[in-house]
Amino acid sequence: MVALMTIFRKEIEDHFNSWRFITIFLLMFVPSIYFIWHGALGVKDMVTSVNYFFFLPMYTASILDNPIPLLPNSFLELVAVVLPLMGIALGLDAINSEKNNGTLSRLVSQPVYRDSVINAKFLAGVVTITVVMTSIVLISIGMGIRIIGIVPTIEEIWRLFFFLVISIIYGSFWLGLAILFSTLFKRVVASAMLSLAIWLFFAIFFPLFQQLIANSLSVETEQAFFSSMQTLINISRISPIQLFNESMAIVLLPQARTMSQILLLSQSDAADYLLNTPLSVGQSLLIVWPQIIITILLTTICFAIAYIKFMREEIRST
């Protein structure tokens, strides 16, 4: 336990002192503040109209009316795209750089359980992500109160809390993926490139493919359209980014439903009523529960493979 805390402490210090982290942090922090500021100004104009939630829309408000394709257009989209980069940056050379520098064999020859090393590294990454996300959310709440002039309701605070938790899980998935590659590959360049390639694929190419498939869907009968839409949605859920976007949209927008639900409900007579009534926090969470569980599962799988590989391999200095 002492050893785990010692390694954890060093890793945290390393993260907060590294240029890599500071760069990614700025890349995330500065646009976040801009997006929220912009969102808050937009919300301020709406305050006069009759609306139930004032605070949350600033997180999902679009910056541009005609968004540039593939570029984030709201705070939420920004987090979906940039937070993975932070997870990757924190984990991309976790194990292999220590191997290459010959520090790992010195480390494991100290009275340390070998799993403490990988556990502490993962934990330090998760805590770093938590610190970053919490600070951004707290600052955004302050900005919101200052600009809009309204205090968030208890319900909105709960929703923000769940936003925080889910984004930490999401960031941890990318961290776990990066750590996995850093145990599998000897060269830092190889592991970093692979993590980034996966990120690039899901952030940019995957939505493109989705679009292509959607265009080729048969729309002859309503029934055929609904079933092929459903298939498309299911396919899209292999993307962690898609899972995050879906769950976040629900958590931050009380009126929101998942695409499949909209499809289902829109066939009902009371569609308008059913689709426009805000849900309670619990109900919203219930909708996205599967998405959250799958993200946790993906994270666990990545970490478990990395863990087993690390525990079994032989550590030599040359």
Partner: peptide, 20 residues
């Protein structure tokens, strides 16, 4: 191994330290 590592020190060939 933990008891052994408490009383045994090891310097590998090409010993490495955190360069930064």
């Amino acid at each position: 191994p933990l008891k052994v590592k408490r009383i045994a020190g090891y310097i590998p060939e090409n010993v490495g330290f955190y360069e930064d």
